[in-house]
Amino acid sequence: MFSELFLPVLMVIFMLVVGGYAVAVLDRLVASALGVPQAGGIWLAPMARGAWLLTQHANATEAPDWRAWRLAPALYLALAAGGLAVVPWSASLVATDLVTSVVLWGSVEALATVVIFLHGWSANSLLALIGGYRYVALGLSYILISMFVLIGVALPAESLQFTQVVASQEGLWNVIRQPLGLPLFLIVGLGMTFWGPLNLADSTDLAGGTASEISGPPRLVWDMARAAMLVAFSGVAATAFLGGWLGPWLPGPLWISLKMLAVLSVLLLLGRLLPRLAPERCVTLMWVVLLPLSFIDLVWAGIGALL
């Protein structure tokens, strides 16, 4: 009973909290290294910010869709939790080892589009709505790429189960076997988590976009959910391309944690180094360049699986 019900829930909650905190600290470290001033201790700053948001009131806008507005951050956090639940920490330590866990991750990506649009739309406010519109335009583009890339890693495993995908990388990690896969998937990750250059939904030109009208605890939940989604994505990327828990000397959970940290660092660094792409360029890039590349990746993976 404990191992089937409570342990998975505890694992996911632990990852939501620790992962969210790790993202906040790492992002501040990256910012500090790049010359953005940081006050006080980098380790305490995320908690001070969380405390401030807890003391701040949740504001109202003129006639919002209250239920949807309040639910959207929680739903996004739940989606991140769903993603984290299918990341295997070792051959036996998985919150939920579904035989269709790759498909479940695909549904998380698709539902994220719905939840983010809901967040922007339900505020009944202009800049938030534009953020929602933009995300839908972008979401359609990246989901297709993600689908092809993930089918690519499922082919050598002959399974849609992440534990099998890891097991199939025993001899050679997918990052080498399918060289186009990880770079494409990282771009998908920036899009899906609307981070850095692909942050079109909560961007500076929209004064925070879908989050431009929220304050207090809902904003804290939204920020945590965004951080948790980055962690979940890093977990899936490490599982699908970097051999998951595989590695010499160290225990499996430590290996995947290190790999997730590496992916997170790359995403956060890209987020701080690159400017935000213009939406039209972004969609053109996705459809004209990256989607054909994902076809090639899939064909490459298919030929590799046949040989």
Binding site: A39, G40, A48, A51, W52, L54, T55
Partner: peptide
């Protein structure tokens, strides 16, 4: 909580 909140950057 309030004392802790006072330690962060001022928005």
């Amino acid at each position: 909580l309030h004392k802790f909140a006072a330690r962060g950057r001022v928005p």
